[in-house]
Design a protein around this nucleic acid. Structure first.
Lengths: 143, 143
DNA sequence: GTTTTTTACTTGCTTATTGCAAGTGATTCT
DNA sequence: AGAATCACTTGCAATAAGCAAGTAAAAAAC
């Protein structure tokens, strides 16, 4: 009769909603993994590892575990290869796309090096919902 | 002729825009300080300290320094009291309101304890821009 | 069919960050 | 004058991050 506590789930710091969200995604790596899942179509451990920010493999393992525990990510064996594992975003993760888009928009405004996707930054301001729909559609096409 | 490096500014991990934003706000505390500044009208060290999440004073000091270095926050002496310091958000911080609102909306959807501001959550979905304008207006009224 | 490579991780260790408790000097309140 | 408040510091223990190397299983190459 002992309540099992999942060590990968955060302990709540307050009942503020901003704080709640930060308990899950308030660090330098979690949203980058979600970015790779939601925007870049990455599905394998090796793909996340290969991202430009150079995440360490032990940190990536831990973040994926936390994301699975938080039900933001689903982990399942790759049907095409018995040694591969597939990670995919859940609806709860898809629902974070607007957060990511707002971060991109903000960076587009203040990051001096941000050129490549400046067009996207404009579109986010002018037609946000359409951009969200587009990203979601691209996600659906992959599954 | 030596370039001074501000130790309070982050080092960039990649030229991704999501990563850029996380270099500044990717931790458990920074956005909570901004929440207090942007939503709760807090302006003094003691007020941030008193928030429900119980930030340690040394961490708060560090975060405020980083926010000032990042030009998200302005620090100035309180004209009403010689021992008080006033912290206030810059336009760059105000521009993060949509990010915060999306976090609140997301929590409103997945946080089982989130009742108090469920009405707000609905409004964010239906009339986002008006909510942003409202928060900004409330900010302006204070200065 | 054996060697090589790839895959998804672990492990061990060092360094950096966080958290806690207590303290500080300068105000300001009583 | 004395106590409380202000915006911080300081010291130290605990936790987390970062780095390099290793591992077993599976798949690809030869």
């Amino acid at each position: 009769m002992n309540k099992e506590v999942n060590k990968d789930l955060p302990t709540r710091r307050s009942n503020c909603s901003v704080s709640y969200a930060l308990d899950y995604i308030g660090d330098k790596w979690t949203l980058l993994v979600l970015r790779d899942l939601l925007f870049n179509g990455k599905r394998h451990f090796r793909d996340f590892l290969a991202s430009d920010e150079n995440i360490a493999s032990n940190i990536l393992t831990q973040r994926l575990k936390q994301l699975v525990a938080a039900e933001l990510v689903l982990r399942r064996p790759d049907p095409d290869s018995r040694r591969s594992v597939i990670y995919e975003p859940t609806a709860k993760a898809v629902d974070l796309i607007p957060v990511l888009l707002e971060l991109i928009r903000w960076s587009g405004k203040y990051d001096p090096q941000f050129r490549m996707t400046a067009k996207l930054a404009r579109r986010i301001e002018e037609d946000r919902d359409a951009v969200v729909a587009e990203v979601v559609a691209r996600l659906g096409a992959k599954n």
